[in-house]
Simulated assay, not measured.
Amino acid sequence: MLIKECKGFELEKEKSNTSEDFFNRSEVTFVENGEEKTLHVLYVRYFDQIFSEFTPYQQDPVIVKEGIEVNFKEIVALVCLLKNPGLRSRKRLYINSKQDFAAYFQDINFNKLPEIILALKQNNGFELRSPLEFIMQPQ
C-alpha cells in the first residue's frame, strides 16, 4: 500500500444551528491495488486537547523534524489505518468516545511515525509493507 498524503483540519460552522465547530477531520489518502482511496476520520475536537493522556506527545506540533512540523490532527487517520488495516475498505470513521479514540493510539510505535511523515513530505509517498512495523510487539 502506498500512503500518499495525511492531513487534518478543524471544521467550521456552515450554519448557525450546526455543531461542526466541535469536530476535527483527519484524512489519509493511499493507493491499494491501483485504486486511490481516502479514509476520513471525524472526531471530537476536545481530543486534541488531551492527546498527551494517550500519546507521548505533549503539544502541537507533535513531530518536528528536518524543518517539517506536523500537528496531531494530521496523524489521526494515519494512526487509525495503521492500528486497524480493515479500515482500508471504509471511507469514513466517526469517533466520539475518548476510550475508543485512545484505543487507536495504544501500542503505536511513535518513534517510527516520523519515518512515514518525512517520506510523505519529501518523497510524496510512503510504501507501507506492513502496518505491524508501526505497532509495538509484546516482548
Rank of each mutant, 00 (worst) to 15 (best):
M136E: 14
S26L: 03
F47D: 02
R25A: 06
L78M: 15
K7I: 02
P85R: 08
R92C: 05
V70N: 09
E53L: 14
I95G: 00
F54E: 02
K65L: 09
N123V: 01
L87A: 09
F101G: 02
E36M: 11
V64N: 12
P61Y: 00
Y104H: 13
L113I: 15
L81N: 07
N123Q: 14
F72H: 13
V79R: 10
I135Y: 04
S130L: 04
E74H: 08
L82M: 03
L2F: 08
Q122S: 04
L78W: 10
Y46C: 02
S130F: 10
D100K: 13
I117Q: 10
K7V: 01
I108G: 07
K83E: 02
L113V: 08
F101A: 01
S26A: 02
L120E: 02
G67V: 01
N109Y: 05
L81A: 07
F47C: 01
F51K: 12
R90Y: 13
Y104N: 04
Y94E: 12
K98Y: 13
K4G: 02
K7M: 07
L78N: 08
R90A: 07
Y104G: 02
S16H: 11
I68R: 11
A103K: 14
I50R: 11
C6K: 06
Y104C: 04
E66D: 15
F126Q: 03
I63E: 04
V62W: 01
V62E: 04
E66N: 13
I116M: 10
K91E: 15
I68Y: 13
G34Q: 02
P114L: 04
Y104R: 05
I50M: 05
Q99F: 14
D21I: 05
Y57F: 15
V41E: 02
K13N: 15
I75L: 04
R25T: 08
N33Y: 05
